[in-house]
């Protein structure tokens, strides 16, 4: 279980998160919607442990552990995965090499045996096939020259390979064409399980037709201002965020 309590965080001295409360139980999918600049990505970075995102108040308990006390790589090894809104390019490092390094680092942390090149390739092929990705993308350098949609698909592939316990998807749907959106959503749905929870950040209720959430929250000006079932997304689509102090956030 993940319990976020009264989370306050600042970036460059500016307070962005102003008291977030959220509880996510194993197996649940929570969607977060909210206006631009509300602090959605900030929240995902704080949970993943990015430098420069300073928690000034509150706590995050992750399966009994103090998540905020862990280094980013330790959080990853504990099963926290963030699909980035803007995936990062790493020139010269083949996607396969990157993924193998990541997968083995996590396995090592968990006291599991590292995979050799053959074993890893086999695993990777299976996952790639499920996401309709080409081998070509695996040989290329991480995200270099990838189209916006390819980058998002690559994030989904990484998630599938690393099999996290808590996945945060930050606008993984933006930039995807309709077919890709379905593929990614299917990939995500395939990963749904009673042990795995997800936090899906999106601007479009369309994604939630495919990935049906248990809860929908509205984050505005650094706070969760409304929570509900999946019908809340439909309501937002119709009325926008004006009832939730969107102007305050802008």
């Amino acid at each position: 279980m993940i319990e976020i309590k009264n989370l306050h965080a600042t970036v460059d001295g500016k307070e962005i998160l102003k008291g977030v409360d959220l509880t996510i139980r194993p197996g649940e999918v929570h969607a977060i919607m909210g206006p631009n600049g509300a602090g959605k990505s900030t929240m995902s970075y704080v949970l993943a442990g990015r430098d420069g995102y300073e928690v000034t108040e509150g706590s995050v308990t992750y399966y009994g552990k103090d998540l905020l006390a862990l280094e980013p790589e330790e959080r990853a090894a504990e099963g926290v995965f963030l699909a980035f809104q803007y995936p990062v390019e790493i020139p010269g490092v083949a996607n396969t090499t990157f993924l193998k390094t990541a997968a083995n680092a996590i396995r090592k942390h968990r006291g599991e045996k590292e995979l050799d090149a053959m074993q890893f390739l086999k695993l990777l092929r299976e996952k790639t096939k499920a996401l309709n990705m080409t081998d070509d993308m695996l040989k290329r350098a991480v995200n270099v020259g990838f189209s916006g949609g390819e980058k998002k698909r690559n994030e989904t592939l990484q998630m599938a390979v690393l099999e996290p316990k808590f996945a945060i998807l930050d606008e993984t749907d933006s930039g995807l064409d309709i077919d890709a959106l379905k593929i990614v959503a299917e990939g995500v749905n395939a990963l749904r399980s009673p042990e795995r929870s997800m936090l899906v950040i999106t601007h479009y209720q369309r994604l939630l037709d495919y990935i049906v959430p248990d809860y929908v929250h509205v984050l505005s000006a650094g706070r969760i201002v409304k929570s509900g079932g999946k019908e809340l997304a439909l309501e937002l689509e119709k009325n926008g965020y004006r009832d939730f102090g969107a102007s305050e956030a802008a």
């Binding site: 430098d51 980013p72 790589e73 963030l82 990062v88 010269g92 990541a102 997968a103 996590i106």
Partner: peptide, 25 residues
């Protein structure tokens, strides 16, 4: 910092991330 954080988020410790990025370079 983006590249380092991206690697670390995937479970790769900072020094290994530097090594990976430099080897790519």
């Amino acid at each position: 910092e983006d590249q380092l954080f991206y690697c670390r988020q995937r479970g790769i410790a900072e020094e290994d991330a530097v090594s990976l990025i430099v080897n790519g370079f």
